[in-house]
Design a protein around this nucleic acid. Structure first.
Lengths: 227, 227
DNA sequence: AAGAAAAATGAACCATTGTTCATTTTATGA
DNA sequence: TCATAAAATGAACAATGGTTCATTTTTCTT
């Protein structure tokens, strides 16, 4: 699967994240019409990620957000009860979207070599699709409220464990060299993170996600794959 | 060279960073006795990195810093003129320390295989020695004042270029496979960054910097080294 | 088109936080 | 031991920024 194919298959507009936000927070969002709420929630999310990724969420003022979204202060507060609640909801909704797609993608492969390839590819494609949130999630992790912070840490470990498990399986079945799978998983994860943390650099070098994925693949397989 | 040997050879107490800060900022630091200034600057730097790495520099209040250092608000302001100036000085002084040691360490190797090993090892050892600052520098890069931000970006690119140059040299001299050296340098850098960005995780796994270095070495050489 | 419901507005409020400075405490040296 | 310089103090000030709500504007319905 190429990135173009991935986008076609898993394309879900950003608005679907806003829609779920609205449906799950009807009590606190004082807007009656779904269309209005979804449209504005999307604007707020995009603006928040844009500003926060430039100057940090703490440094982003509600006036900044008001300016960027074109909405008044009071209007913003009909969509969430506080700045912290905005952070919480944004994180929660994007995270649950990420988990859903990831689980949908993986698990149909069985051969460890193919499984590793699929896992790496899916992660890269997802982080490409949702780059602003991946970056945000990494950089703001320490500022997240408790529950969301724990989810972020758990998600990080889950990703690492997923890769580690594939490495272990590959070793047991004789496909991979018997290297330390924990260290290996950590390093592979670091390579995956580099893609969304250094997006600007990769863009400047004109490296596509497919080129990056192919290079990673070769790099990793040179060390692990037997024969 | 092991990490223990590196520490012995390049050990410079943190106070040397404070001392240089004092000597270069005598006009703004309203303290007459060097010993007093150096001691307190060190306390301030350590506390700042500690708090900022936990909650972010913007979220750190001067009252937090006063509490952590045990110094009064007024006292803090005899060591720098503003919170931003503290950030600037801290970054500038640590960065110049880092560059000095890095340049001292590298450049005596000529064979590209040895050179790559030395570069990786030195970077890991330095980031181990100055972990709080490395982490800080990565996470706060976007909040740094203009000059310091540019230095941080330049430093990042310089590290990548250094690695890339070694890869190119190795390819030209026939030691390395002809892989894309730019992509390779970026990925190696990502592996190096993982060491100081995920310090807690590595500590929990009881991985020493020497173990990590050895693993990286093998990983990278499996892909690049011929034969 | 008019009335009612929904949505948006932004000035005002107040807690927080960077910064200062008149005063107190500590260190120095004769 | 006392006088003076050095250093530290923390309450007070001013600006910033999150939050609210009485009012206005827009949208919908009949």
């Amino acid at each position: 699967m190429t990135f173009a194919e991935f986008q076609k298959k898993y394309y879900i507009s950003r608005q679907d994240i806003s829609r779920k936000t609205y449906l799950e927070n009807r009590k606190t969002i004082h807007i009656k019409k779904e269309a209005t709420a979804v449209k504005n929630l999307d604007i707020i999310y995009v603006a928040t990620l844009k500003i926060a990724n430039k100057k940090g969420f703490q440094s982003m003022t509600m006036r900044d957000l008001s300016c960027e979204t074109g909405m008044s202060m009071g209007s913003l507060y009909t969509y969430f009860t506080s700045k912290e609640e905005l952070l919480r909801t944004l994180q929660e909704q994007h995270y649950s979207f990420f988990v859903r797609i990831l689980e949908e993608c993986i698990a149909d492969e069985n051969n460890p070599v193919a499984k590793l390839r699929k896992a790496i590819l899916t992660h890269l494609y997802l982080s490409e699709t949702m780059q602003p949130w991946f970056y945000f999630s990494f950089m703001e992790a320490k500022n997240l409220p408790r529950t969301e912070k724990e989810k972020a840490v758990a998600s990080d470990l889950a990703t690492e464990k997923m890769i580690g498990d594939i490495l272990v399986q590959g070793q047991q079945e004789g496909f991979f060299h018997p290297h330390d799978s924990q260290l290996g998983a950590g390093i592979i994860q670091a390579m995956l993170q580099d893609w969304y943390l250094k997006r600007g650099k990769h863009a400047r070098k004109d490296v596509s996600v497919d080129q990056y994925a192919a290079y990673l693949q070769k790099f990793i397989e040179a060390f692990y794959l037997k024969g």
